[in-house]
Simulated assay, not measured.
Amino acid sequence: MANLASKLAALGLGTALIGGGVFIAKHEGEVLGTYSDPVGMTTSCYGRADPSHQLGQVFSPDECVAQLAEDIKKHDRQLTQVVRVQLSEQEYQAYLSFHYNVGPGNFRSSTLLRKLNAGDRVDACIELTHACSKTRGTCEGWTYAGGRQLPGLVTRRREERDLCLQGALSHEAN
Rank of each mutant, 00 (worst) to 15 (best):
residue 113 L to W: 08
residue 31 V to A: 08
residue 51 P to D: 10
residue 171 H to Y: 14
residue 103 G to A: 08
residue 133 S to G: 02
residue 114 R to S: 09
residue 82 V to M: 12
residue 15 T to Q: 12
residue 98 F to V: 03
residue 21 G to K: 12
residue 103 G to N: 06
residue 52 S to V: 09
residue 94 A to P: 07
residue 126 I to K: 11
residue 100 Y to F: 15
residue 106 N to E: 00
residue 119 G to H: 10
residue 143 T to F: 01
residue 92 Y to E: 04
residue 159 E to H: 11
residue 124 A to P: 08
residue 43 T to I: 12
residue 121 R to H: 13
residue 149 Q to N: 04
residue 99 H to D: 07
residue 19 G to V: 02
residue 147 G to Y: 05
residue 70 E to A: 14
residue 38 P to A: 15
residue 112 L to F: 08
residue 77 R to T: 08
residue 40 G to Q: 01
residue 8 L to W: 10
residue 54 Q to F: 06
residue 28 E to S: 06
residue 122 V to L: 04
residue 117 N to R: 02
residue 68 L to T: 06
residue 78 Q to M: 12
residue 56 G to P: 02
residue 160 E to A: 07
residue 73 K to S: 11
residue 75 H to A: 00
residue 57 Q to G: 03
residue 31 V to H: 12
residue 101 N to H: 12
residue 19 G to N: 13
residue 174 N to G: 15
residue 56 G to L: 01
residue 66 A to V: 03
residue 45 C to V: 11
residue 88 S to Q: 13
residue 80 T to C: 04
residue 23 F to R: 05
residue 44 S to G: 13
residue 15 T to S: 15
residue 41 M to W: 06
residue 162 D to F: 09
residue 163 L to I: 07
residue 157 R to A: 00
residue 118 A to E: 07
residue 68 L to D: 13
residue 46 Y to H: 15
residue 6 S to E: 14
residue 12 G to D: 10
residue 72 I to F: 03
